[in-house]
Design a protein around this nucleic acid. Structure first.
Lengths: 190, 190, 190, 190
DNA sequence: AATGAATGAGCCTTCATTCAT
DNA sequence: TATGAATGAAGGCTCATTCAT
């Protein structure tokens, strides 16, 4: 049973994810999810108490899937790979979930609710980028006065791009231009 | 009469602005605004049909206040001034409105509604920054391979910072670090 | 001034009449009339307290215009003339007011409100028809066992036609068929 | 469950019918029905979306109950039976629903909404009467120049009576007088 | 007289949440 | 566990009516 229950739980999460990707966070109601999952109103409450609980768990799932330190290779290769992944994610339809994510963050922030998962994820992201940059600096591939600022710069820039993608829209060329800029900033200066 | 009406209209806008700053965009109801303004339900409808209409007008007001091409001086001075203004705005309590703004943009975006005011404002921002950068490059103060990308870089970075300020939070030091980074990128390379 | 006021009052009645013709009785709001007349909300209340008061006065006006005993001629001529007038009224756009009239009657009836004007008008109509029929019978033009029933028959039939015109619709042929039927009933039997 | 739901649905229809009979169509609000049924506001919406939907279904129910071609016997018997049924219906408290019906028809008509059910019912009524008349004419019981007009005459007259019953009121004697008139018109002329 | 802003009551509709089955 | 009917709170909107100017 616990097995079956786990499967149903996962089914709900997967289905709800598509709903959040489509409608953002705040607009999604328990009813929307009930309808998308084609289960009963009461049935959903057995597993989750609120859209917030569902989204929070979806985030946990997503975070678990993340692997910052993918592959091996030189720092340059790894950074290039990372940036390419980010580019794909910014352009992809999964962008939808990022809009929901922003709404979720605002929602938590407005309520002055702690949002440690998000904060932690952000810090983890910064740390991962910082690690790559540091490695590159150590190996002489990159140049940076202040490694922390360099990493933050990359992360903030990517957030800015992602946000723009969800609102005013960005072209692939715009993204490429910025990625070149990032790499240039780390490499060009001898 | 029209004078009095204009005053009340402005009063509503001003009051609503504080509500949006506090609660974002989506969570704000006509009732919230009615209560904040201490007017009657029907009274509000005399002036505005929806929270969207109110917020849209607030945005117009804000945009009108914007003056990108402030002061004179060298390109460097002007950029420094601009960045300092941005820094203040990112750190200030007006930050609240920016969260509402993001929600508003997502709201429009989800509904596939045109949001020309926002798009125009974004483009205007990019153009203004680009103008300063170009001026600096022309005068030899700045160096940039691709002026457009350089301007976009600044704008995206500031958006990323502003977003972070509204969610995970940013310290003044973080902002300063990034501003230095921007200036460094434009100046350092000879 | 009283002259000017009387003119305005009449203007309101005339304008409101077109509104009632278009929307019936119950759907018409004071706001509708205010807008149609392009006067102020408060201004309307100076003259009338409710849509009911306005409609009631319109009815009085209409009743005053009615002249059942028009023209002279034989009973047959006068009946033919009367029926032709009814036919025109049933087919005309003034039909709109008749729908409003029905709604008004129902409205009064539901509230168990006296509606003497209507009742009186109905009785007056019956009496007028009855007078013509009686005249025809006396002169030998018509034949009728029961003059009152004959008159009621004509009135009810016309009401049925008018009602149908406002709902399921009637063709001119249908009306003609019924008028022939009426005349036939009075004349054919010797 | 579906059984219980069907019962509740029917309960709502039955209760709403009394409300419509009392207040007509347009004045009835969802709130009225909610209160009459002693259920919750939201509860009603589970079954019906609007007063129109409820009334429409009530009409369907009523139409299903109708049996035009009742009993056997001669055309004269059948017509007499039919007319007697109509008389009872005109005099009965079910009259209330007929006022609502008229309002409903006007409502649909004003909105230029198709109201096929009503039109069909009207045509079916005419056809049924026409069939009886034709049968009588064929068997020599009745006499009529134009069978269609004769049938329409009966139907329009009954509508006129029903309408009058809902507004100015009719006495049983008035109705009897008219029924005699109808029968006389069909029979007397040899 | 006339204006039109303001009020507040009233109806509509949608959901989160509960609960008997 | 699962269902889905039921509830009631919440927010949206429209008008009749009043009132200061």
């Amino acid at each position: 049973m616990s097995d079956k229950a786990a499967k149903k739980r996962q089914f709900i999460l997967d289905t709800a994810k598509t709903v959040f990707a489509e409608k953002g966070f705040k607009s999604v109601t328990m009813k929307d999810i009930v309808e998308a999952c084609e289960i009963s109103r009461g049935g959903l409450y057995i597993y989750f108490d609120s859209t917030e609980a569902i989204f929070s768990e979806i985030l946990r799932d997503e975070a678990a899937k993340q692997s910052w330190n993918l592959a091996g290779g030189s720092a340059g290769d790894r950074l290039a790979f990372f940036l390419n992944e980010q580019k794909k994610s910014i352009l992809s339809s999964d962008k939808g979930l990022s809009v929901a994510l922003y709404e979720y963050m605002f929602y938590k922030h407005e309520g002055n609710l702690s949002c440690d998962d998000i904060n932690d994820a952000f810090k983890a992201g910064v740390a991962a980028v910082e690690a790559i940059v540091k490695e590159g600096v150590d190996s002489g591939e990159f140049y940076a006065d202040d490694i922390h600022s360099a990493a933050l710069n990359i992360v903030y820039l990517l957030e800015g791009l992602r946000l723009a993608a969800g609102t005013v829209g960005v072209s692939e060329r715009d993204i490429d231009g910025q990625l070149v800029y990032i790499l240039g900033g780390l490499i060009a200066e001898e």
